[in-house]
Design a protein around this nucleic acid. Sequence first.
DNA 1: TTTGAAATCGGGAGACC
DNA 2: GGTCTCCCGATTTCAAA
Lengths: 152, 152
Amino acid sequence: MKLDSIDKGLLRYLQEDAKQTNKELSAKLNLSVTAVYERIKKLERSGLIKQYVAILDKKQLSLGFMVFCHVKLAQHTEANITDFEAEVSKLPEVLECFHVSGEYDYLLKVVVEDMDAFRTFMINKLTSLNHIGSTQSSFNISEVKNSTAISI
Amino acid sequence: MKLDSIDKGLLRYLQEDAKQTNKELSAKLNLSVTAVYERIKKLERSGLIKQYVAILDKKQLSLGFMVFCHVKLAQHTEANITDFEAEVSKLPEVLECFHVSGEYDYLLKVVVEDMDAFRTFMINKLTSLNHIGSTQSSFNISEVKNSTAISI
DNA sequence: TTTGAAATCGGGAGACC
DNA sequence: GGTCTCCCGATTTCAAA
């Protein structure tokens, strides 16, 4: 889909605050409300806007303990890979899982309550998955930047 | 803030789709529209709901190249740390930056167009920041799971 | 209940063939 | 002239306050 500079501005605003009214957006973009409305609908239909979500404060939910787990598989057969990926996707503690290059195969972002919950997660969930070779964990000490907005 | 099971359900729904109407939510939760409205306002006021954002399709924006950069600082003085954190936060290619335990000090999620853009980013932006000791990059091969919704 | 936004329609200006 | 795209204004519908 081709985007002009107005679309790009619109996407920038919606990435920061998706609940602005079309009226507010129309003022910022010097456009009529209808034009804003139709551009947004087009961006939604094209799939460029995938989803609107609420971002929560993990601290207030007692889920402020974030760990990055690097995972290496035992053997890299296709069956192992699809199997592991399906299983890990089901774990609610795992917010993100990327297949990556380098020494380890996967990078996981894990969110739990505290060290104790992490220990339980590792023993009962992650390392009990099939095909796991080895893991290495880095604990989050502080969030320097944590954004979902990509720069357009 | 204390949450009952209805609040938790509400948060689960809003993390999946923040643009549902209160009417839809009231049906799912067996509640009146007004009750839903007031619960949401309370969650917003308390800061538990931090933000509503639009999630975009990186592929369609030609920003499908994601890299995880592990960064080690040269010296860990307080000045170096605050300086580096302020500078890296300004880089639009860096969506996330966490101070982590382990061999490296920081883990960055970097989003660019392609390998060429990444090369430019590394040379002109990241490694030209002050206080950088060494870096190590892992390229994203595939997204297995990528969610913003924490499990409540 | 009242206010205001979202959704929809008809139409007009400009680009292109 | 005919088609397409983009924008505006007015109106109706429906959710929020």
